[in-house]
Design a protein around this nucleic acid. Structure first.
Lengths: 335, 335
DNA sequence: ACTATATTTACACACGTGTGCATAATATAG
DNA sequence: CTATATTATGCACACGTGTGTAAATATAGT
């Protein structure tokens, strides 16, 4: 009903200047206790709330951070967002969400919007379409701190949080080799994104190291979905030589693949072993339970957020750092 | 490097008044084509971006909406947020995320924050702790439109988007009865939330209608999690009379229950049938595939967003409306 | 009582934009 | 070549807040 009550409204109502009101509400020492009480009483009664927009315009502080992800309804990203949001709101920050939907164009639009809204900082993970991260340099021009995670790009100099992708894929292959698998396929994403590039590098390294005859990488370029399962199946099993183990960079995709394998009566793990990134504890109840490569979601989120916070506070610090965390392999029945 | 360039910077650089620059950039007819070109050339070159904060303070328009959910890393809510975010960004809105983490206190804090930041509108789903929605009335005082979905409250008069919860639970029970099940348990949430209250009402109605001897509702009050599975199991199977069918309001929780049932060698569906809300297509690949009650996520999101948008545009319209959408039961092997 | 010091309040400005109104510059007509 | 119409630009203010500085008032010291 009533319009928003402002500091000036309080001032005119109480026949004093708004600057006095401002100081009173911020508990400035140089306002008389008596008037301070009168003011805060009136403020409380009328439900006064500081207008953050005015504060922000004044340049006092920016209290909003932006997160750019390909899709928020994928378990990994929604976990990250959840962790960041909780931590941010503890320190009084508001978090806005932007989805690139895996497209370069939307990512560019998002960047402009973030600049227009003058966000205090940005945490981002690249879309599959973005062959480079150069459009993100715009943030630097506008003095907006940026931290990237997971889907990072090599050709832009920002702080990054990643996991030991190459290493963990070597470990994965080694694990499979030790179990006797010798035709291991790798389902991945576009290699220009650091995550996938590194995983593929690790995969190839291991294939060479263990002198495997079979090397096959299948690349998905437009986001992982369950529907891809069938396509992937065709690509893998139409050859004369078929894999006896599969490592998937995506958990969602592997659900589709499992469905397809069942239709074709291909048994897991006797006919083909399975291993996938992403632990949403659903891997546990699928039969057979799927061996998964578990990323430290919470740690990734916390690290990225703290990195960003440091940049927001200490503005002069221009150094960038890349922090690498470790993924672990949770062995289950599927291998 | 360079500080943010403003409309005034352009003005002084070009030796004209900032008001002219403002008009030029908004393609106002009364600025000479020649100067307009000069101005927009300079603006482009220096990467000028409108400062939305200034615009917002001016009261022109608020371009941000807030979403309050218990947890964003639950499939249902991340789906909703994803849909809303995409639709919002199409119409130039920025979406901020707030998590109550199922607590009343955080919800209250969030409400204050949203008011301080002067959001244009709010879409919310209540926490389990919130026995009523009265704290949401604060939005009305501050003229901030509010739309609720899923976890709505009866005692606050706002526009709502819900599904036919009572009806679909009656259908579910009927389906089970027709298949020969006669001891059907219902795992639900706190009944003071409309969703759960309605589902329990529907359940009880059906139990009475089909003259079943067995009636059992188990209530979870602190958010659904996989870990609850064991607790629920104990509550259900410690009695002398045990259920031969279970309907769960949560999908996450049922994963934990399935794990527990397997441990105890209780077969699905021969020993006990299972049915759960939420279709994340994972239900499909669990063995046996779980019969699920599918909510129209996209439609819920779109409806809520459009309702909000209408309120934001036409400010005078004080009527509230409740829109009820239909859930459907997808029968699979688990019953 | 008169100056010196301490306390409390008011004034004016800044942040970046947009707009009604006045004014200046230019064009058109008689 | 003036009078009028047209067009282009500048001025001042508003949005809500906070702060440096000046002004008003009170208190103390001699």
């Amino acid at each position: 009903m009533s319009k928003k009550i402002t500091i000036k409204d309080i001032a005119t109502a109480l026949n004093i200047h708004h600057s006095t009101v401002s100081r009173a509400l911020r508990n400035d020492s140089r306002v008389k206790e008596e008037t301070r009480k009168m003011i805060s009483a009136y403020a409380d009664e009328h439900g006064y709330q500081t207008n953050m927009i005015a504060l922000e315009l004044r340049g006092e502080k920016r209290n909003t951070i932006a997160i750019i992800v390909p899709n928020i309804n994928h378990q990994f990203f929604s976990n990250i967002v959840s962790y960041i949001t909780n931590q941010a709101s503890d320190s009084g920050f508001v978090v806005s969400i932007f989805q690139s939907n895996e497209t370069y164009q939307q990512e560019k639009n998002i960047i402009d919007t973030i600049i227009q809204f003058n966000f205090a900082g940005v945490i981002a993970s690249l879309s599959m379409e973005s062959v480079d991260g150069l459009h993100f340099n715009k943030f630097k021009k506008h003095n907006i701190p940026l931290v990237m995670f997971d889907r990072v790009s090599d050709d832009i100099n920002v702080s990054k949080v990643v996991i030991n992708n190459a290493e963990v894929l070597q470990d994965a292959v080694e694990l499979l080799v030790n179990k006797g698998y010798n035709r291991i396929a790798h389902i991945s994403g576009p290699p220009h994104l650091n995550v996938f590039g590194e995983r593929q590098r690790g995969y190839k390294l291991a294939v060479k190291q263990f002198k495997l005859d079979y090397e096959k990488i299948i690349t998905v370029n437009k986001g992982f979905s369950m529907e891809d399962g069938k396509v992937i199946y065709d690509k893998l099993f139409s050859d004369t030589i078929t894999p006896n183990a599969i490592i998937s960079d995506s958990s969602v995709l592997i659900y589709g693949l499992i469905e397809e394998l069942r239709k074709k009566k291909i048994k897991i793990p006797s006919d083909v072993a399975l291993m996938a990134f992403g632990e949403n504890s659903i891997m546990e109840i699928i039969e057979p339970a799927i061996t998964s490569i578990v990323q430290p979601d919470g740690e990734i989120a916390t690290t990225a957020y703290n990195l960003l916070l440091k940049k927001i506070k200490g503005k002069s610090d221009n150094r960038t750092e890349t922090i690498m965390l470790s993924a672990t392999i949770k062995v289950r029945e599927s291998i």
